[in-house]
Design a protein around this nucleic acid. Structure first.
Length: 584
DNA sequence: GCCGTTTTCGGCCCGACTGTTTTCAGTCG
């Protein structure tokens, strides 16, 4: 009897092992090895369980002899002795302590061993009773820090959506650029890499007069409170309890600092390893030759990458997912941009649960420079969304035709978003499906089904010759609902074989498929994609930028994305499925 | 614990800041 672990579950176990080893004072390299393995497992598209049975575990970078064996034990026996033994020494709750800013592995261990503190509540009580200051390495200041850390821990477990952070950061940066003495300014960190969620906002400023600029930053209109201000760094609180860290650097170091603070950590580590082999070192001040301590680059990012013989790697790719290797081989993708997008392939109107009229959608689409817009209202079985009956479909088509006559600059497509039933069937018969310009289908219920059930439904929909796009294929909602269990490799394979497009849903808390999935689906299966906003109102059409951001992070190029083609080409491309499946 | 066109052993990214310390450990990004 084998245990069917998900990758996330296995990753979690190794993550905890890493943390426990850290608390136990184990070799930092061993700690890092487990951490690395956990990351590798989590971002692996194939199921680790499957890889185990195929004997391919060791092919995953970061999984060696010892960890492969432990994974095997997990699958074969359902448990892991090594993990259980560690848990007896280091209670799980102690790991929670490390999530409090200011408490690391060393302090967590002392707190547990000396005062038997096991929970954040224990910690809070001990601080209040001033018990901490007698411990070795602790003082009054440490206590203060921990009090603040507990508050931060309690308040912010959720990460900020890119859509909340990006517009705000852009506004701040444009203000900064107007300040006298500011030579350059940019968002850095995960925000610049356009990650789907952000921990905090980092902004980098190049100036020769940091003192004056810091004073100006304090008076920016968005700033509600100054949390800390030094010579080169200032932290402020802006609207809705959001922290923004500004770092000020000299213009001659700006490129190096931007590269350094943009990350990702993993990308930078790889670059530093390469630098080290060349006898160089790289830090936030520049790229240096160690022997002579002479500066090789630092003014801008391009020259740093150039020294390595690399083109500038776009920030969304900097995740150590093979981008450095690809860049060396000249195989970096030309990632898709907003201006490549010719239309939106997923919008709702008042014919189902959307707020916008067809005409308003057409006008807004023209403003965005689109040449088409697929109106994919829900089909009848989605009652909560007032899904369309066949009569509604007919009525809507008449209106679409009228509007298309009135606005020749843009074409509204007669689309639909079907519901994939529990048995894999959809709302309408094939004859009706054949009348649409574009047919999408989504799983809207039954999220609790088993992996086999949900996969079966989705595969069955992919086999339907009239379904062009599978929408939000994993069903996740960021910060609210995890992805449902689905066998993505199977979905990717069949989608590629049948010529079915996979949606990249641009709704800011969906972004589904997500970046890692896109990369795998494209690279390993040759899938093609459709970017849609799932707009339920006019303002949502602008969310396309978050879809494009995610596409960039997923290495997608113009040619991979259906709506980067002209309308004529779109029709040709989607018709290929019916040809492949032998339907005329 | 992992990994290898300079290695199967000996490495493993780098620096700032803070606080508790008389020269450094811990935490963070």
């Amino acid at each position: 009897m084998y245990t069917d672990w998900s990758n996330a579950e296995i990753a979690q176990i190794f993550e905890e092992i890493s943390e426990m080893l850290e608390v136990a004072g184990e070799s930092p390299f061993r700690v890092a090895a487990y951490q690395k393995a956990a990351n590798a497992i989590r971002s692996q598209p194939e199921r680790i369980v499957d890889l185990f049975f195929q004997g391919k575990l060791r092919e995953v970078r970061g999984i060696g002899e010892s960890i492969a064996q432990k994974i095997g034990e997990l699958i074969e026996s359902g448990g892991l002795r090594y993990y259980e033994e560690l848990k007896e020494k280091i209670p799980f709750s102690v790991l929670k302590l490390m999530q409090v800013p200011g408490v690391g592995p060393k302090k967590a261990r002392i707190l547990y061993e000396e005062l038997n503190i096991q929970t954040v509540d224990d910690l809070e009580k001990a601080v209040k009773e001033q018990k901490l200051r007698d411990l070795k390495g602790f003082g009054a200041k440490t206590e203060e820090n921990i009090v603040r850390g507990i508050a931060i821990y309690r308040q912010g477990q959720e990460r900020l959506l890119l859509s909340d952070a990006l517009p705000l950061a852009e506004e701040i940066v444009s203000h900064l650029r107007e300040i006298e003495g500011v030579e350059q300014a940019s968002a850095a960190g995960s925000l610049r890499r356009l990650k789907e969620t952000i921990g905090d906002i980092d902004i980098l400023v190049a100036t020769l007069d940091s003192e004056k600029v810091i004073e100006k930053i304090m008076r920016l209109p968005q700033v509600k409170e100054v949390l800390a201000a030094g010579e080169t760094k200032i932290s402020v609180r802006v609207q809705s309890d959001l922290q923004v860290d500004f770092r000020l650097v000299k213009p001659e170091n700006y490129g190096a600092a931007l590269q350094y603070f943009t990350g990702s950590k993993e990308h930078n580590i790889k670059l530093r390893e390469i630098a080290k082999k060349k006898g160089w070192k790289i830090n936030e001040y520049g790229l240096f030759e160690v022997a002579t301590n002479s500066k090789l680059a630092g003014q801008n990012e391009e020259e740093i990458y150039q020294m390595f013989g690399l083109p500038l790697i776009p920030p969304p790719l900097r995740e150590d997912r093979g981008e450095i290797e690809a860049a060396f081989e000249g195989k970096l993708p030309t990632i898709i941009e907003f201006f490549d997008i010719k239309g939106d392939l997923h919008v709702h109107s008042i014919y189902s649960d959307g707020a916008a009229r067809l005409e308003e959608l057409a006008v807004e689409g023209i403003k965005l420079g689109y040449s088409y817009l697929a109106v994919c209202d829900h089909a009848q079985r989605l009652r909560v969304a007032r899904g369309m009956t066949p009569e509604d479909v007919e009525k809507r088509l008449k209106e679409i035709e009228k509007i298309n006559q009135r606005y020749p600059e843009i074409k509204l497509l007669n689309g639909v978003e079907l519901n994939i039933e529990n048995d894999g069937t959809v709302d309408y018969p094939l004859e009706l499906l054949a009348t649409f310009d574009l047919v999408s289908a989504s799983v809207h219920w039954g999220f609790g089904q088993t992996r086999e059930e949900i996969t079966y439904r989705t595969l069955k929909a992919i086999e339907n010759p009239y379904i062009n796009i599978i929408c939000h294929p994993t069903g996740r909602i960021i910060n609210k609902r995890p992805a449902f269990e689905i066998d993505l490799p199977k979905v990717f394979q069949l989608a590629a074989e049948t010529g079915t497009f996979l949606e990249l849903n641009s709704y800011p808390d969906r972004l589904d498929l997500k970046d890692e999935h896109l990369l795998i689906a494209k690279r390993d299966y040759g899938c093609k994609f459709a970017i849609g906003t799932d707009a339920h109102g006019l303002v949502h059409l602008a969310n396309i930028r978050y879809g494009v951001a995610t596409a960039q992070r997923g290495w997608l190029e113009k040619k991979d994305v259906l709506n980067s083609y002209s309308l004529t080409e779109v029709f040709t491309l989607i018709k290929e499925k019916q040809k492949k499946l032998g339907v005329s």
